[in-house]
Amino acid sequence: MIVQNATPILLLALLAITFLQSGYDKIKDWKGNVEWLKGHFSGTIFGNQVPLALFIILVMEIVSGVFSVAGIIELLTKTESTIGFYGAILSCKTLLMLLFGQRIAKDYDGARTIVIYFVPAILAVYLLG
């Protein structure tokens, strides 16, 4: 089963590592993240909403990461992964939210970086769908 599902397992591992580490970083340094993002989004529609927006992103990242881990476990024990599919979809939604924020902040290099993560996420949706 591992060999047959190697590609989706590796893609879900990438998503799990990406989002769980990012969520952990947000929790560990909440204050620092809020302060940095307030400057990043000053003068935008999110300027006064940074803590709420960061909390929403945090929840999305943790749920995406947990679903991705659960999807790996499901792939290792079954022939399909509905949970992994939903994890990949949530990952795409999370990345689109991050992309939107970067575009609003006019951080085009940051937006470009998010697209790099979006490609494997959408591939996971395709393979698991």
Rank of each mutant, 00 (worst) to 15 (best):
S22E: 02
A70P: 07
K26P: 00
M60P: 02
V69D: 00
V34K: 05
V63P: 00
A121F: 02
T77L: 13
N48I: 08
D29G: 12
G87W: 08
V63C: 00
G32V: 15
I116A: 07
H40K: 15
Y86V: 11
G32R: 12
D107T: 12
F41V: 12
V66K: 01
N33H: 14
D109C: 05
G87L: 11
L90A: 02
V59K: 02
I83T: 09
S91T: 10
F67W: 06
L99H: 13
G71Q: 09
Q21L: 14
D29W: 13
L54Q: 05
V119R: 02
Y108A: 05
K78F: 07
L90H: 01
G101K: 10
D29Q: 15
H40N: 10
N33Q: 10
S64H: 07
V59P: 03
G84K: 07
G71F: 07
A105R: 10
Q49T: 12
V69Q: 02
G43M: 15
E61T: 08
T82M: 08
A53S: 04
T94W: 04
L58V: 10
M97H: 06
D107I: 15
F85D: 00
L90W: 00
W36C: 07
K106W: 11
K31T: 13
L75Y: 05
F85C: 04
L96Q: 06
L96D: 04
T77C: 10
Y86R: 08
R103Y: 09
F118P: 05
Y117R: 15
Y108W: 07
E61K: 10
I27V: 14
E74V: 07
E74F: 03
S22W: 04
I116T: 12
I116P: 01
G47Q: 11
C92Y: 04
L52G: 08
L75D: 00
I56R: 06
M97N: 07
K28V: 10
W30A: 06
G101C: 09
E74R: 15
M97Y: 05
L58Y: 03
Q49S: 13
E61W: 04
I45D: 00
P120G: 07
F41H: 09
G87Y: 04
Y86L: 14
I57Q: 06
S91N: 08
L54R: 00
G87P: 03
L76V: 09
C92N: 09
S68R: 09
T44G: 08
C92P: 04
A88D: 01
H40D: 02
A70T: 11
I62T: 06
V66F: 11
